[in-house]
């Protein structure tokens, strides 16, 4: 189990997020269905479309802030994280791009803790449900760079400046609500 590095959290008592990464997943469909049905209270991401840990971290932070302020636009905190990874406010599109799908082989599962730092039994549920190899987020394997560049409209002129792909993605996520 890895904790989403959550240095960005506002206030000490705000719930943090935890994440579990699985490679070689064989039952992604069942996992996604469980999240959809609410029997897994977590957000299920396709590991190939999450560009990096900072992006995930900032998505969690923004989801937290939006919910605290009553400004959330998605259904629930975990959907808000998926939306936070996107450059647009189109929830359906965000789910298609960043959410786990039937054919996902790498899944990143993220859940907010409760107020006292407990995981609400999610870890046990995740372990029981997911058929795959538990690994660290950084070992989730290759990301889908080509799609990420297309979705976020990241071109060569920008990458030639020497920043990372993740920096470029973060900037699109950041201006989502003011674009």
């Amino acid at each position: 189990m890895a904790r989403v590095r959550y240095d960005a959290v506002p206030g000490d008592d705000a719930p943090e997020a935890r994440s579990w990464t699985f490679a070689s997943v064989t039952n992604a469909r069942a996992v996604v269905d469980a999240a959809r049905a609410g029997t897994l209270d977590a957000c299920v991401l396709d590991g190939r479309s999450v560009v990096g840990a900072r992006a995930l971290d900032m998505a969690c932070y923004r989801a937290r802030v939006a919910i605290d302020r009553g400004e959330g636009v998605a259904r629930g905190a975990h959907a808000e994280i998926i939306l936070g990874l996107s450059h647009s406010r189109n929830v359906g599109e965000a789910f298609r791009r960043f959410g786990g799908g039937e054919t996902s082989e790498t899944l990143v599962i993220v859940a907010f803790e409760d107020a006292s730092g407990g995981d609400r039994g999610i870890e046990a549920r995740v372990m029981e449900l997911v058929e795959g190899r538990l690994t660290s987020f950084d070992d989730r394997g290759a990301i889908d760079e080509a799609s990420i560049k297309t979705w976020f409209k990241i071109g060569d002129a920008e990458l030639a400046l020497g920043g990372s792909l993740e920096d470029a993605v973060l900037s699109r996520m950041a201006i989502r609500d003011v674009a």
Binding site: M58, Y61, R62, K153, I154, G155, A157, E158, A160, L161, G163, D167, A168, L170, S171, R172, A174, I175, D177, V178
Partner: peptide, 17 residues
Amino acid sequence: MVRARKLGVLAPHVVHV
């Protein structure tokens, strides 16, 4: 700032708004 970087102009990365 984001557009400037897209154009290949060195400006700080935006991280959050």
